[in-house]
């Protein structure tokens, strides 16, 4: 699979259709995001698989935003999985990236990774390498809903009180690009105090994720306290789908119902 990706990147770079390609590279035994700019420099390219498939994924969209803000005229390529591509669609909608300035190199996730992620669509629309695998039906949210109210309360209270307020979930999130963040607004979140305000801190973030979260799971992976944030955001996506028939990142030209005038559309 990696050879096909390498060929594709090499082609994009050599025919000058992109200025650089944001992907992953293996250096010093570690995987890191990298901007490839020369076609004969692609040796360290890797896809983020070390011990398990996809165990070293990084928010490449976030890297792309950083570079694109500095070089708005140039076209860049980016290595995308299903989730990354959903992220790009959301970033187009939120005017953070321009669709005609981005070229994707899509790879499909293997079944093992899709299962671990409970991913609904473990492949991008524009696929370059890998085999499409079936989406997984999400069971985690349902299991939580089946518990009774007091059980859910003690579960989440327990989870939220583990929070050390590292803000890692926000910092790693490819959908978090705001220069000013509500989580740093002292009227909402008290500064420098632990335990965190339950449930204000986590629900504020969850509310901001309702029409954005693309279910990449990087927040879950980076949380030092092991709070199941992804489960929380999966629930917001489920609500958005049930109430407004909206799933973020599924259509390239989507619009968020939260910003549209008028009542919720008929189900």
């Amino acid at each position: 699979m990696i050879d096909i990706v390498r060929q594709k990147i090499s082609k994009l770079l050599s025919d000058g259709s992109v200025k650089g390609v944001v992907a992953l590279a293996m250096a010093n035994g570690h995987v890191a995001p990298c901007l490839f700019q020369k076609e004969d420099d692609l040796e360290p390219l890797c896809l983020g698989d070390t011990k398990k498939p996809g165990d070293a994924r990084y928010p490449l969209n976030k890297v792309l935003i950083t570079i694109a803000r500095q070089y708005p005229e140039d076209v860049f390529g980016v290595l995308v999985r299903g989730c990354d591509e959903r992220g790009l669609y959301v970033l187009y909608r939120l005017n953070q990236l321009e669709p005609d300035k981005v070229m994707t190199i899509g790879i499909a996730c293997p079944q093992e990774l899709a299962k671990a992620c409970e991913c609904k669509k473990p492949y991008p629309d524009e696929l370059v390498a890998g085999e499409k695998t079936e989406g997984i039906t999400q069971q985690g949210v349902q299991d939580m809903e089946d518990m009774d109210l007091s059980k859910r309360f003690s579960f989440w209270k327990n989870q939220f009180s583990k929070c050390v307020k590292c803000y890692g979930c926000r910092d790693i999130c490819p959908m978090c690009f705001c220069r000013e963040c509500s989580l740093e607004c002292e009227d909402i979140i008290s500064k420098g105090e632990l335990p965190v305000d339950i449930p204000v801190f986590h629900l504020t973030r969850a509310m901001h994720m309702t029409d954005r979260c693309i279910d990449c799971g990087l927040c879950d992976e980076t949380c030092p306290s092991g709070i199941p944030l992804r489960l929380l955001y999966k629930k917001t996506s489920k609500i958005m789908n049930a109430e407004f028939g909206f799933t973020s990142g599924i259509n390239k030209n989507e619009q968020s119902p939260l910003n549209l005038m008028g009542p919720a559309p008929e189900k």
């Binding site: 449930p199 509310m207 629930k235 609500i239 109430e243 939260l258």
Partner: peptide, 18 residues
């Protein structure tokens, strides 16, 4: 209208958190 939609989501999220 936007607020109403957000309240819909938030009330269900509160319920989800018990």
């Amino acid at each position: 209208y936007c607020a109403e939609k957000r309240v819909t989501v938030l009330s269900q999220m509160l319920d989800f958190c018990g």
